[in-house]
Structures are given as C-alpha cells and as structure tokens.
C-alpha cells in the first residue's frame, strides 16, 4: 500500500474491542492503527494519508468528546464515535462538533464500513482543500509588504489613481505593483485574483467613495 492509501485510527480502552475492530478493518483492506487512550493517539506519528478516527465515547482520562474538542483546531481526521451505551445528550454534542457518525455498540459491519467510507471521502476533500490553500499561501508569501498593501485595493476594484492617492504614491508605481501581484500570484485575471484573496480571507475594502 502506498502512502496515499487511507488509514483508520481506533481509540478504545477495551482491548477486546480494539482487537476485534483491528481485525475487521484490516479484513476490509484498510490500514488500521489502534490506541488504548486519547493520550496515546495524540502522541503517535500519523502518516500523511486520508484517514478516519474511530473513537470510543467513554475513555479513561480525557474522554472521547474532549479529544474531539482538542482535535478540532488541527487538521484532524473525521471522527466516527462508538459507545457502549449512547445517551442522546452526548451524541448530539458529538454530531454538532462535526462527528461523521455515532454508532452504538454492538454495531453491524455495514454501518461501520459506510461510516468509515464517508469519513475517508470527507477527509480526501478536506486534504485537497488544505493543499490548495497551502499553494495560495505560498504564492502570497512571495509578495513584498508594499504589494500586500496594494492587493486589497486591487481586488476591491479601485482605479490605480485612487489607490496612489490613498497610499501617497504615484499612479505609475501602483501599476508596477499590480503587475507584480498578478504575476507572483499566478492569477490569469482580476476575477481569479479576487477568488484567491477570498480563499486567503484577505479582508475586503469597501467600494470607492
């Protein structure tokens, strides 16, 4: 299996459940890695591949929901919760926080397979989106500070003359900056540059007065 093949992480404190899931998931032809606690999972090295996290709701130490909260800030894999006895309150919290699925033990093979497939598909999309953004960011990082100042004026559709007036420089200089920006960002049109700026969440100026 190459490095791009998906991997399933299992975090459950019950060794019996870990063993069974490990066996079942590998029988599906997926890579699998099991952990006894949230801490173990956090400390492990994760391969750069589409992934899915099967997480027991009740864990010793940090609980499943807590781990979910911690992972929300990172580029973590989508989560499928499993629980010995599900209560409505915790399932709602889990789903609101972005869980893919919430499975009650004992669960069927198909349920699990569907949940894992769904999760990995989501992760693939997320991963792609993340790499695009990283590319854009790399381009943006090439801009000089002056060019980053000018960029919002360009995407806001300001004429060079107005921009020059606002920034206290000449219209010709602004024209040169504009050319550099288009080139460094590999933007083929102003519309594309505007989309890029949106993705980079560059704050938009209000329209010309």
């Amino acid at each position: 299996m190459n490095s791009d093949s998906p991997i399933v992480f299992v975090v459950d404190d019950d060794y019996r459940v870990r063993e069974a899931l490990s066996s079942l998931i590998s029988s599906m032809g997926l890579r699998v890695a099991v952990f006894g606690s949230a801490a173990e999972f956090m400390e492990s090295d994760k391969p750069d591949a589409p992934a899915c996290l099967i997480l027991d709701l009740q864990l010793p130490g940090a609980s499943g929901l807590e781990l979910q909260r911690q992972l929300a800030t990172e580029d973590a894999p989508p989560i499928v919760f499993i629980t010995g006895h599900g209560d409505i309150a915790s399932s709602v919290r889990a789903m609101k926080a972005g869980a893919v699925e919430f499975l009650s033990k004992p669960f069927g093979e198909q349920e699990l397979l569907d949940a894992i497939g769904d999760a990995i598909a989501r992760d693939r999309i997320a991963r792609r989106r993340r790499s695009e953004l990283a590319e854009l960011q790399r381009h943006y990082n090439l801009l000089t500070p002056r060019e980053r100042e000018v960029l919002p004026f360009v995407v806001a559709g300001f004429a060079n003359k107005v921009t020059a007036g606002d920034l206290g420089t000449s219209e010709i200089t602004i024209g040169v900056h504009r050319g550099q920006i288009m080139r460094k960002m590999s933007a083929r049109s102003l519309a594309e540059l505007v989309r890029m700026a949106d993705k980079l969440r560059i704050p938009r100026l209000t329209g010309p007065a």
Partner: peptide, 10 residues
C-alpha cells in the same frame, strides 16, 4: 455491550 460489540466485530 462492550464484550458484545467485540463479539459482533469479530
């Protein structure tokens, strides 16, 4: 449910 889940998965 814990051992049951394991049984089913196995």
């Amino acid at each position: 449910n814990q051992p049951l889940a394991a049984v089913v998965a196995n």
